[in-house]
Simulated scan of single mutants.
Amino acid sequence: MSTPLIFIAGKLSNGNGKMWAAPSDLPRSWQCKPFRGRRAAMKFVPALIALAAIITAPAHAQGAIGVVQRGKYVCELPGDASSSAGIAQPDLNFTIKSASRYSTQKGRGAYLRRGDVLTFTSGPRQGESFIILSPNFMRLAEDGKPGRLRCVRSSR
């Protein structure tokens, strides 16, 4: 039974002991074709990593998302030596209701805390930012620095 295989192997051999590969007229299956897109895609990987780093850099620079302690915050401007210690600003008082909600005399809204910066994102005080100096004390941000207006948590 093995004799016919020897003759067939001899006819397919190229004399060096290696077998000839018979060319096929059949189209190659999609499973046999090399994936040429992988090499092209690998060229863009460093660029994609750099792009992701650029996009996420501002998020890291702004600080972690957090919450502000609940309660009523009373706002005032500093006084001088001839008058009281602070000049009350009752129209600017606000109350932190929950993890992202506040209310004022004029209505309700939402806030976002990133690091030591509190920003009112909706409602009557939308766009205002405060620099948080301690858990119960913050100042209105003026050009990214603590301003004159200060707000102190007075009650829960």
Results as ranks from 00 to 15, higher is better:
Q69I: 10
I54C: 01
A47H: 03
G63Q: 08
G63H: 15
A50D: 03
R70P: 05
T56L: 15
Q69R: 13
A52R: 00
Q62S: 14
I65M: 12
T56F: 15
A57F: 09
A52H: 00
Q62M: 14
L48N: 14
A64W: 02
P58K: 15
L51G: 02
A52T: 00
I65T: 14
A50G: 02
I54Q: 01
I65F: 15
G63S: 13
A59R: 11
V67I: 09
P46S: 06
V67C: 15
V45P: 00
A50M: 03
L48Q: 09
V68I: 09
G66I: 15
G66Y: 12
A53I: 01
A53E: 00
A61S: 11
A64M: 08
V45W: 01
I65W: 15
G66A: 13
Y73W: 06
A52N: 00
F44L: 12
I55T: 07
Y73T: 02
R70Y: 06
L48K: 07
Q62N: 14
A59K: 13
G66M: 14
P46N: 08
A61Q: 05
A61K: 08
G71C: 11
T56E: 10
I49L: 11
G63R: 05
H60M: 03
V68S: 11
F44I: 07
L48G: 10
P58Y: 09
V68N: 14
A59Q: 02
A57G: 04
F44T: 14
L51C: 04
G66W: 11
P46K: 08
A50Q: 00
I54P: 00
Y73Q: 02
A57W: 08
A53C: 01
G63Y: 10
P46C: 11
A57Y: 05
Q62R: 14
A57R: 04
Y73L: 03
V68C: 06
V68G: 03
L48A: 12
G71L: 12
A59E: 11
V45K: 01
A57P: 03
F44C: 14
L48V: 12
I55V: 10
V67E: 10
Q62W: 13
A64G: 08
L51W: 05
Y73F: 07
L51K: 03
A50K: 06
L48T: 15
V68L: 12
H60D: 05
A53Q: 00
L51R: 04
P46M: 07
F44D: 12
T56R: 09
Q69E: 07
A57T: 04
V67N: 12
A47G: 03
V68H: 05
G63L: 05
V45S: 02
G63D: 05
A57K: 04
V68M: 07
G66N: 15
P58T: 09
L48I: 13
L51M: 06
Y73R: 01
T56N: 10
R70L: 14
A64H: 04
A47K: 03
L48E: 15
L48S: 12
P46H: 09
I65L: 15
K72V: 07
Q69L: 12
K72T: 13
V45Q: 00
Y73H: 04
G71F: 14
L51E: 03
V67R: 13
L51Q: 03
A59W: 07
H60A: 02
